[in-house]
Design a protein around this nucleic acid. Structure first.
Lengths: 210, 210
DNA sequence: TGCACGATCAAACGAACGTTTGAATTTTGC
DNA sequence: GCAAAATTCAAACGTTCGTTTGATCGTGCA
């Protein structure tokens, strides 16, 4: 009970203020628990950070693996379309981002997480993502046999950036352009646009060799 | 002299550890100046953060405006190609990222800056970017008359994400995929790939209406 | 030469940080 | 129903944070 209260409060505050700028006292006050509860249940602030990230990232990545398993099994050896692979990868996270509340909050947090310089966060992410990226790299390689593996990796990298910024940078977009991006339907308007953008980038002609 | 030493040291440390995690003592020790020097020259840590960002962002954005002015003047009223506009926007920053040392360091910092939740950073960025984004939005709108303005804004948003993550997330890419991305020529290998990805996304077919 | 002013310095400020402690309290297992 | 284990609690720990202070230094102008 207390554990879950802390995780929820920490996720909200981490998403809003960042890891460093969120103090234990902010977390425990928001959660309505004692200050010592975090160290009792998680050991340290760093471990709490890991727990907040892993609680949702692990199921998310497991679902990414399973989604790819399913479409590949369905294709029965035939190459899977690039669009389908993209949907496997981003589908789960984007619907998570589209649902209001905790899910969307976590996606905003996750978007920020990539640029977080903290060692504990970076190591945690690298370990979680490495097998997923490797799996999807191979899948894309089969779907786009004309694209060298190195380019596949780069384009995955770019797609990651576009997506994480799309979700976590909505405040920035609103501040800069004045575009209204709040509300539960904002994500529903964004997702198809993002998907077509990603596919356009993924299938773009290779740059002429230099 | 001391001012410049502080700015350089602060930029390096901000890029490596983030704004919050970088203390005044780290900055002044790295710069080889007295602890009180930051408050003497900049007033506060927040003002130093602003100064570090604005020192390079203001010239960068001014150059973006000028580059667009020039290609539009050259076109003499004819619409400018989308690729050219993209090059105007990202060209300067990508060459800045490609050069080693201070320039590249700042681009890594700038990429992280977008997801920085700090109020002082967000306000500073919004004020600096707003006129530039408005100008480029209109330029893209003329270059791609079939794309509604709202989609233009979204695609600019996605492009921002892809680019900032491409630059600032190189550590993450290396950690996750093992791809070697260090060295001065890493950027030269990335830039054309990023450019073709961005153009592919920008010119992707619009998602069918839902 | 002497004065004035901007710059640098060591030292200290109160506040907030993450963490620890030991007692009080609640829950669990038999 | 009671001992034992798990949890919650108020209080304090030492450390580090950003900032301030007042003395000292160096330099250019009168």
């Amino acid at each position: 009970m207390t554990r879950a209260l802390i995780l929820d409060a920490a996720q909200t505050l981490f998403a809003g203020h960042g890891f460093e700028a969120t103090s234990m006292r902010m977390i425990t006050t928001t959660a309505g628990v004692n200050l010592a509860a975090v160290n009792y249940h998680f050991g340290s602030k760093d471990e709490l950070v890991r727990a907040v990230i892993l609680r949702r990232l692990q199921p998310l990545n497991a679902q990414r693996m399973q989604a790819l398993d399913e479409v590949e099994a369905e294709a029965e050896g035939a190459p899977v379309k690039a669009r389908t692979i993209v949907e496997c990868f981003f589908g789960g996270s984007l619907t998570m981002a589209a649902e209001s509340g905790q899910g969307r909050e976590f996606m905003r947090l996750l978007g920020r997480t990539f640029t977080e310089p903290s060692a504990v966060v970076r190591d945690c992410l690298a370990a979680e993502y490495a097998p997923v990226i490797a799996r999807y790299r191979d899948a894309f390689s089969r779907a786009l046999p004309t694209v060298p593996v190195e380019d596949i990796v780069w384009r995955l990298h770019f797609m990651f950036g576009a997506m994480s910024h799309a979700v976590s940078g909505l405040d920035a977009l609103q501040a800069v352009t004045g575009v209204q991006v709040e509300g539960p339907d904002a994500m529903k308007r964004m997702v198809p646009r993002l998907m077509s953008f990603l596919l356009g980038g993924l299938r773009a002609p290779l740059p002429e060799a230099v």
